[in-house]
Amino acid sequence: MTKRKIGMWLYQNGGGDKIQKKIIKQLKDRDIETIANLNLRDAIAKNDHIIYDIDNSNIKLDKLDLFFSYNAGEQTPYQTFLYKALNKVIPMINSYEAFELTEDKFQTSFFLRQHGINTADYKLCHRDDVHRLSDVMKKWKKMVYKPTDGWGGIGLTKIENEEALDMLIPFLNQVNLKYFYVEKFIDYDNTDYRIDIVDGKFVGCYGRKAAKGHWKTNVTSGGSVFLREPNDEIIELAKKVTKLTGLDIAGVDIIYDRKKEEYVVLEINGIPAFATPEQEKMGLDFNNKKIELIVDLIDKKTKNKGLYK
């Protein structure tokens, strides 16, 4: 039997380098070879192959048994363009279709609402209809402007009154956006649940809390992580939306709407971070389980490569 070979591009900060070594070791134990740090930025497409030059050896990426892309912070349009092409000929984790869906907040919310999942009320406006935001503001009282792509809370702007909206609109007109996406601000306790799912299985959960006087729970926006146990309803909700979106690996952000008294899916992340060394010290101990499930998933997909094309 020909030895299986995969490509991997996993973030290296926050303990990612150590996580990568563990994954590679476990894959090696299963006789799966890994080409690590495979950044599609350095690949070129030529005729019928996508080629990556490493140590003067041109590797045909389209001949790999699988490509595992897990680096949110360094993505570029060129990389995702090749990601889409590779997805048509080899198995990917995550698939490009699932990646593309969950990278777009509007598309995700629209899709989930079509399947009966609670998300924040939203409005998508054409750039020439920005005046409609004033009518939305009068109805909702408070709302959040969100770029439809991006991560870590970057670009999120809370709008609490007409004056704040009047200040935002000139900015939106200047940045040449094609459309504007806003969500109704949900009355919650400034904490959330982050549920990690791999291959349909529950991996772990933790909570995030906004800094005092702020509302964003994202760590990159000043929020902090704390230990938090989920109930069965939250776990099943996370599993359901992961399956619906087609993600192999997902981090599902859930908050509790105090006014409607229901859980709301706030966001789905296809590249949820592993616990950092500091977070492991405070008790977040799901990394090993997550690694094992990812290795099992890669093993399964590479054994059944033809089923995933």
Score class of each variant (00 low, 15 high):
residue 201 K to I: 12
residue 191 T to A: 08
residue 16 G to R: 01
residue 213 G to Y: 13
residue 162 E to K: 13
residue 243 K to I: 05
residue 173 N to V: 02
residue 187 D to K: 15
residue 213 G to T: 13
residue 38 L to W: 09
residue 121 D to Q: 04
residue 4 R to W: 07
residue 117 I to N: 08
residue 150 G to F: 02
residue 19 I to M: 05
residue 255 I to L: 12
residue 46 K to L: 09
residue 272 P to A: 00
residue 253 D to C: 07
residue 93 I to T: 11
residue 184 K to C: 07
residue 246 G to P: 15
residue 253 D to M: 07
residue 120 A to E: 04
residue 140 W to S: 04
residue 208 R to Y: 06
residue 105 K to G: 07
residue 84 K to A: 14
residue 45 A to I: 09
residue 188 Y to D: 11
residue 130 V to M: 14
residue 81 F to N: 06
residue 11 Y to G: 12
residue 180 F to R: 02
residue 103 E to P: 04
residue 221 S to Q: 14
residue 271 I to Q: 02
residue 184 K to V: 05
residue 55 D to A: 08
residue 169 I to G: 06
residue 28 K to G: 09
residue 245 T to H: 12
residue 260 K to W: 00
residue 64 L to T: 06
residue 274 F to Q: 00
residue 11 Y to V: 06
residue 138 K to Q: 06
residue 1 M to Y: 14
residue 48 D to F: 04
residue 151 W to S: 06
residue 230 P to Y: 07
residue 274 F to G: 01
residue 232 D to N: 10
residue 140 W to Y: 03
residue 185 F to G: 05
residue 195 I to K: 05
residue 237 L to T: 11
residue 207 G to R: 15
residue 14 G to L: 01
residue 98 A to Y: 06
residue 188 Y to S: 12
residue 197 I to R: 14
residue 146 K to N: 01
residue 252 V to H: 09
residue 137 M to P: 02
residue 283 G to F: 03
residue 132 R to K: 10
residue 276 T to F: 01
residue 190 N to L: 12
residue 136 V to N: 06
residue 89 V to S: 08
residue 281 K to M: 04
residue 273 A to M: 01
residue 257 D to I: 13
residue 96 Y to W: 15
residue 42 D to H: 14
residue 44 I to P: 02
residue 131 H to P: 01
residue 245 T to W: 05
residue 109 S to Q: 08
residue 158 K to W: 03
residue 191 T to G: 05
residue 257 D to H: 14
residue 297 L to M: 11
residue 249 I to Q: 05
residue 97 E to G: 08
residue 304 N to C: 00
residue 202 F to M: 09
residue 265 V to F: 01
residue 54 I to W: 01
residue 243 K to W: 09
residue 247 L to N: 15
residue 66 L to Q: 13
residue 118 N to M: 11
residue 57 S to Y: 12
residue 226 F to M: 09
residue 161 N to S: 08
residue 199 D to A: 11
residue 15 G to A: 01
residue 57 S to F: 06
residue 304 N to D: 02
residue 114 Q to N: 14
residue 118 N to I: 07
residue 80 T to D: 11
residue 206 Y to H: 12
residue 197 I to G: 07
residue 206 Y to M: 14
residue 70 Y to F: 15
residue 216 K to R: 15
residue 306 G to T: 01
residue 209 K to T: 13
residue 51 I to M: 02
residue 44 I to Y: 07
residue 250 A to H: 05
residue 209 K to H: 14
residue 6 I to E: 04
residue 300 K to D: 10
residue 271 I to K: 00
residue 14 G to I: 00
residue 230 P to D: 08
residue 149 D to H: 08
residue 59 I to P: 01
residue 186 I to D: 08
residue 50 I to C: 04
residue 98 A to P: 12
residue 67 F to K: 13
residue 157 T to W: 00
residue 303 K to M: 04
residue 91 P to G: 11
residue 76 T to E: 10
residue 241 V to I: 10
residue 25 K to W: 03
residue 180 F to V: 13
residue 116 G to E: 09
residue 85 A to L: 06
residue 107 Q to A: 12
residue 184 K to S: 03
residue 16 G to Y: 06
residue 2 T to Y: 10
residue 276 T to Q: 00
residue 95 S to H: 08
residue 55 D to R: 04
residue 150 G to S: 07
residue 171 F to N: 12
residue 61 L to W: 06
residue 158 K to F: 05
residue 41 R to V: 02
residue 167 M to S: 15
residue 226 F to G: 06
residue 301 K to I: 01
residue 85 A to D: 03
residue 194 R to A: 03
residue 15 G to R: 01
residue 104 D to P: 06
residue 88 K to H: 07
residue 66 L to G: 09
residue 104 D to Y: 12
